[in-house]
Computed example of a mutant assay.
Amino acid sequence: MRESIEERRLRILDVLDQHEEVKVAHLAALLNVSMVTVRRDLETMATQGSIQRRHGMVRRAHGEFSGAPEGSASQGTVAIIAPERHSYLGAVTHGARRFLEHAGFRVVLHLTPNTANPERHAVAEMLHSGADGVLLAPRWRTLEQQDHAVAMLADLSLPTVLLERRPSRALGLRSVDSVCTDHVYGVHLALDHLTSKGHVRILLAAREDSPTARTVNSAFVALAREHPGIEHWMTVLSAPDAGATTHPSVSGSAAPVTTKHRARPHHEDPNWLPDLVREQKFTAVIIHSDENALVLSQRLEAAGVRVPQDCAVVAYDDVVAGLGNIPLTAVSPPKEEVGRAGALLLSQRIRAERGGTIWTPHRVELLPDLRVRDST
């Protein structure tokens, strides 16, 4: 899809938000456009008051966003619906909010409580307030909650984009766009990194109470079962409050490929993970989320299982993984970029529908990175 002038100018603002001052030539190289194009953009943006130019340099003009003051509704109003106290989705919605404010939209934030089906009330309130579109980043602890919300969204006529969530293929939901991370690829990155280091016995300790967690679990089982470099693998819950289902943990070995059920670990015992690592001779563990990874890596060390000498640790989410006493290698989804991409998609859809253009819904996936730190 060819980048519009508006998208390119928003990218210019993103660059200037990250750097106090940038050379015009360097800016053109970053954007992969000609000097003529970038100078034309900068002249317009300087006239609008969003940037300042001086002696071949450009910097952000403080207090304005793309020629529209923050909070203005020149382009319309977008509601962002997200759960309260959720650091991962908070980073996603932060990226969306910055993009929308730069683009001249008024942003209304609805924080939902950790209850069953909280989106219904927020959507009703949003419709009453006259929003032009909605970005939805729901918690969806269980598949039942997810299916209930998707059924509700099927009747929503307003332009809607799901952030870091994808409706199940069985339910369709053709009217709603989505932008999310390719978490199957994220698990692939973690396994390839560990097997390249010689690890052949790998444990996954993961949550089950979000669509991301469920994808990480299913991807690990599928990939570990077929990976030629893995001799033995297992999945367990990473915390006592991490479960949303009653499925038992699963393990398997390479030759012949077998699977069996195991009892869930006794999380009241702080040594359950070190004991499991020793019993099953695991030399590496992938842990979702990285908040759980910080706690469990500390418990490994306290029990005499050295990280990474005795057991390598890869966290999943990379919200706080780098902040531990031992900075953790982590799969890092592009959280803010997911938000920006979703906001861009929503703004394009709003403009298209205002102009009477038939909109083709999008399912967008962005690739995560692997941030290698001391734990591997």
Rank of each mutant, 00 (worst) to 15 (best):
L100I: 15
V277W: 01
A254Y: 12
A29T: 12
R120F: 07
L109R: 14
H26P: 02
L42Y: 09
L276Q: 04
Q309N: 05
S196L: 10
H19F: 14
V78T: 04
A137D: 02
L136M: 13
A124S: 08
L367Y: 03
Q18A: 12
A116H: 00
E268A: 11
A224Y: 06
E7D: 13
Q18W: 02
A25R: 15
G49V: 15
K281I: 00
H227R: 07
R60K: 14
S50H: 05
L296V: 09
V184D: 10
Q348V: 04
L276T: 14
I202D: 00
V24C: 01
L10I: 01
A242E: 04
L135D: 01
E64F: 04
H188Y: 08
V15E: 02
A82S: 12
P83M: 10
E6N: 08
R207I: 07
D275Y: 02
T115G: 00
D310P: 01
I5A: 14
E226V: 12
T360Y: 04
V320R: 10
G229P: 10
A254K: 15
K335C: 02
P308Q: 04
F105W: 14
R85I: 02
G56C: 13
F99A: 10
P308Y: 05
V313C: 00
I287S: 02
F105M: 09
T235L: 11
V216I: 15
P69C: 04
L42A: 13
G130I: 00
A303V: 01
K197T: 11
T181L: 06
S332Q: 09
V364Q: 12
V187C: 02
P240V: 09
